[in-house]
Nucleic acid binder design. Structure first.
Lengths: 192, 192
DNA sequence: CGTTTACACTAGCGCTTGCTTGGTTGACCC
DNA sequence: GGGTCAACCAAGCAAGCGCTAGTGTAAACG
């Protein structure tokens, strides 16, 4: 059992697991269902993952890692004005939420099913991401672009953004960038 | 099996079930755990509820029903200015989220575990609540208190509010009213 | 060539799950 | 004081669960 590796095979299996976790929820997804989706038998699954928990952790790690990379890239690519950076973060957030939807839905809904060790490890990743947000919020506050409590504003913004997975329809008329722009407009006191 | 009634006994059992569902998640909560928490044996549980699903539906119905009543009362109690009504809705929302926290956390996290019939029934309740919000948002838009797309603004606000169950600490320095006021300030373009 | 390695299989163990069945208890009612 | 009824219990069934053990196989390696 080569449990620790980052093989492309394992990446693909993780992606398929995410799909099922979204459809059925973690607890209702059996190892037999996972195996069938992957085109193997349930026993073979444990060649790639130590146990079912590890599959969940892999899914969430993937999604969070990607979000962090996307956000850092987006910040690196834009100028230093708080407005530009706020837009960049919001757009990057919504873009990962779309392209990597399954993994993020799992991260949002099944976080509590992680065992304590996995949770501790993944908390660091998530904290790094949230710190990015707080920095950008701080800059916007410093420039007078927005007002209010830094802690509360960043929580409110994260909530508004994450809630989109509940109602956003990719087939609808609105693009993720539309949402991002409207949200930033809403909190920066400029007409949309 | 007196399944349909609204006995006070059943209300109390529902409250205890909500507690467990929050702690363990619906799927991980066994009927034996529920029975123990209720001080009865697992078999006796099915005297009060048809099956495990019905307990979940009862928990969510309770919470949503209460939220609807609270919101309507709050609106009835305040004057007709959009600002006052916006505050009233936000405060009422956060107050139920606090006093009825268990039921609302279950509604937010375990909604997808409902079977189709229960979901259809409860959707109406939830829609009624969301319609209230959209009306108040409409009034605020009409008065020029806020700007933007009615649909998007109400979704963003609901997201920001519902996300609070993730991070809000009732023991902390902030009251629910503080949060409500800060949120309204954030979207109405007035300094906090 | 023989050995190793990655990946898959079959078969099933030990346990837990939601739920059923058949029966007991005690409070209330005419 | 016999009948009714809500509330509970003891016992257990059939199904499904995560996971393990042991084996097969084909490609890669020296």
């Amino acid at each position: 059992m080569n449990v620790m590796n980052e093989s492309p095979r394992r990446k693909e299996l993780t992606r398929q697991a995410a799909q099922l976790f979204v459809q059925e929820g973690f607890d209702r997804t059996t190892v037999r269902m996972l195996a069938q989706e992957m085109g193997i038998k349930s026993g073979s699954l444990f060649h790639h993952f130590r146990d079912k928990q590890e599959i969940l952790a892999a899914v969430i790690e993937e999604g969070t890692q990607n979000a962090l990379v996307m956000a850092r890239d987006a910040l690196a690519r834009c100028d230093s004005s708080a407005d530009a950076r706020l837009h960049a973060m919001a757009r990057a957030h919504l873009e990962t939420l779309l392209t990597d939807r399954n993994a993020h839905v799992v991260a949002l809904y099944e976080w509590r099913r992680l065992d304590p060790e996995a949770r501790a490890h993944l908390s660091h990743l998530r904290d790094a991401y949230e710190t990015l947000w707080e920095q950008v919020i701080d800059e916007a506050l410093a420039e007078g672009l927005i007002h209010g409590d830094r802690f509360l504003v960043s929580r409110f913004v994260m909530g508004a953004l994450n809630w989109t997975v509940r109602w956003y329809d990719p087939e609808g008329p609105r693009t993720p960038d539309d949402l991002a722009d409207e949200l930033v407009a809403m909190i920066t006191r400029r007409p949309a």
